[in-house]
Design a protein around this nucleic acid. Structure first.
Length: 592
RNA sequence: GGCUCCAUAGUUCAAGGGAUAGAAUAGAAGUUUCCUAAACUUUAGAUCCAGGUUCGAGUCCUGGUGGAGUCACCA
């Protein structure tokens, strides 16, 4: 439609004012004005001298005359509002009604793929609310990009080695008494996480003792025996000490098992995992190579650096004096490995905005190393999830645990549901599945509806809402539609004829308009890496539908054609809700 | 301190340089003989401050103020 209009507007302006315009921008007409599309005439004023109202009027007249779909127009100030005919909307609806995956673009199998990295946890503590945002965001962005017509690989880098891992290992060794997930009935990640906290407590005690003995705080922090021992353990690990490696494997496995449970509950998955323990060496070779080429330089103590002062950044270390890898080294290696493993067009890193600087440097280094794809790396930077008390810190136990939160959401869904008592005939199992669907729907929507860039302040005292602009609200609308479809005991999936003779209810028009936007929204969300756009769109659609549902009869229509049309409309809205929510990783229930 | 990001109803979020800044929630008032009231309808309430660019600024630029992040041989 917009294409037809654009052509016509260009031609019209040519004729009226003898001016050629490259492109015309349309916007949806605001609610308070009559019309469907709006052309801002002010935009032409740079090229055409004259009164905007006059130009708008002339253009409007031209369009009504030459474009059959335009039935009338009005000009307010410099805004030309076009009214599109009902038959156009009806025909459009009939077309999209039959398109099964309306809005989704099938990827070209030969095209290069997009890789999305997300989650990327440390294997020394359980996942918390911050990880939930990361996972939901990464998963959803991957789904959206796939829907927009790209092949997508989901991946993560598992930070499974380093001093932080040794800390929980050491604490377990010292204080664990051989505890296992089985013996304690704890999830593996929870058990290991407890020892990470335990380490920190002991470490702090030792620091206090040392300071009491007259050491400075700085000395104490470096000399605390438990820390020294952890460092020793790391060296043993790097040297391949069988005992340490065995312990490392055992405890990592506990954590992986725990993570799997959380990932499954969250509904996220990965096509390929990268492990830092496998890739940390790769970066070192690249650094050695870059050193030869003069991209990096060595300091007296043997550490290797890159000078980015010309680019307005600092010097950055890429290899420690003792030759061991740092975070950056590993990331360089992993990126190169990924482009080797897959035929990638781009690589998206879903990582919090506290690492903005790190990724700026990483991409710059990769580009200096001569990798042309470095410009196709993108840091999907999102805001932190903070508590009213400030930042979440695992070591200090000030975190909202992922599993606990999901459980809590399910419990809330259960109690609301039981209070409403609409689930006659559902088995206990069916009900439990439903509670999870609703509870997680509330949580996921709550997080994804916010622009990724913005930080989220989560107050555990105030629970996540289940009414208003929420996941359950949208799920509820879906369930209601399914109820209508169950009760529609006639064949509504037929093709309607005589579309040119009927007129639409105002609510039907706006509903169809909203449906037609879906493909554009997907493309937009993919381009902006923003699930929030999908969430907002779905909310608007549902709002529109509820209003429609409340004001006009559907199954109760006297007119047969109208009844079928409104049932079809309901069905399509349901399908779009389901598809849109799938992009957010949220399920929809048949009843609730 | 340098750099980066953020600032919109009491609160949580919207607004591709465009019209009278939208929702939700909390507040006030209504709607169940009818397709699920987790809904619908009505009502009141906001762009941090000062300049500038523009026909037009919540949005772009400059300077303040307030907040967050970062500037590690941690990841």
């Amino acid at each position: 439609m917009q294409k037809i209009l654009e052509q016509a507007v260009k031609k019209g302006l040519q004729k009226i004012c003898n001016v050629t315009i490259d492109s015309v921008e349309f916007q949806a007409t605001k609610k308070d004005f009559e019309g469907d599309f709006t052309i801002v005439v002010f935009a032409f004023l740079r090229l055409i001298k004259g009164n905007p109202v006059e130009i708008g009027t002339k253009l409007g007249e031209y369009l009504v005359e030459n474009v059959t779909e335009v039935s009338s127009f009005n000009v307010v100030k410099g805004f030309l509002n076009l009214v599109i005919s009902d038959s156009y909307f009806l025909n459009s609806f009939n077309t999209i009604y039959k398109i099964e995956n309306f809005g989704f673009v099938t990827p070209n199998p030969k095209a290069k793929a997009v890789m999305v990295e997300y989650s990327s946890p440390n294997t020394n503590k359980p996942l918390h609310l911050g990880h939930i945002r990361n996972n939901l965001l990464g998963y959803s962005v991957a789904e959206i990009i796939a829907a927009s017509g790209k092949k997508v690989y989901k991946t993560q880098i598992i930070n499974d080695r380093g001093i932080h891992i040794c800390k929980s290992m050491l604490a377990w060794q010292r204080y664990g008494n051989g505890e296992t997930p089985e013996s304690t009935s704890l999830k593996g990640d929870k058990l290991v996480g407890n020892y990470y906290v335990k380490f920190d407590q002991e470490y702090k005690k030792e620091i206090t003792k040392l300071i009491a003995k007259g050491k400075t705080e700085e000395e104490a922090k470096k000399q605390a025996p438990i820390l020294v021992e952890a460092q020793q353990m790391l060296r043993k690990w790097e040297a391949g000490d069988t005992e340490v490696v065995a312990l490392w494997k055992k405890m990592n496995q506990w954590v992986f098992d725990g993570f799997d449970i959380t990932y499954t509950a969250l509904g996220v998955n990965f096509d390929k995992n990268y492990y830092e323990s496998n890739t940390y060496l790769l970066g070192k070779d690249v650094v050695a190579e870059g050193l030869k080429k003069g991209i990096f330089f060595k300091k007296e103590d043997g550490s290797v650096w890159i000078d980015l002062t010309e680019e307005g950044l600092d010097e950055k270390i890429v290899l420690r004096a003792d030759g061991t890898a740092v975070y950056m080294t590993q990331d360089i290696g992993t990126a190169i490995e990924r482009f080797k493993d897959f035929d990638l067009e781009s690589l998206i890193y879903t990582v919090g905005n506290e690492q903005d600087y790190h990724f700026k440097v990483l991409f710059l280094i990769l580009s200096k190393l001569g990798y042309t794809w470095a410009k196709n790396c993108y840091h999907l930077s999102y805001g932190m999830v903070d508590l009213p008390s400030g930042k979440m810190k695992s070591r200090e136990g000030t975190v909202v645990d992922a599993d606990d939160l999901m459980l809590e959401m399910t419990n809330t869904a259960r109690s609301i549901s039981q209070e409403l008592g609409k689930l006659e005939g559902y088995s206990t199992e069916e009900k439990e599945v439903l509670y999870k669907t609703i509870g997680l729907g509330a949580l996921k929507y709550y997080i994804l509806k916010v622009d990724p860039k913005k930080r989220i302040l989560f107050n555990p005292e105030e629970s996540v809402d289940f009414a208003g602009n929420t996941g359950p609200f949208i799920q509820y609308t879906y369930a209601r539609i399914q109820s209508i479809l169950r009760k529609a005991n006639f064949d509504y999936q037929i093709t309607l004829s005589k579309v040119n003779e009927v007129s639409l209810h105002e609510k039907e028009r706006s509903l169809i308009k909203q449906l037609l936007l879906f493909p554009e929204i997907i493309q937009n969300a993919a381009a902006n890496h923003s699930p929030a756009l999908i969430a907002n769109y779905t909310y608007d659609l549902v709002k529109e539908y509820n209003s429609f549902y409340q004001t006009v009869p559907i199954l109760g229509c006297e007119n047969e054609q109208e009844k079928i049309r409104r049932t079809q409309l309901s069905e399509k809205v349901g399908k779009i809700i389901k598809a849109a929510f799938k992009l957010l990783g949220i399920n929809v229930p048949e009843r609730m």
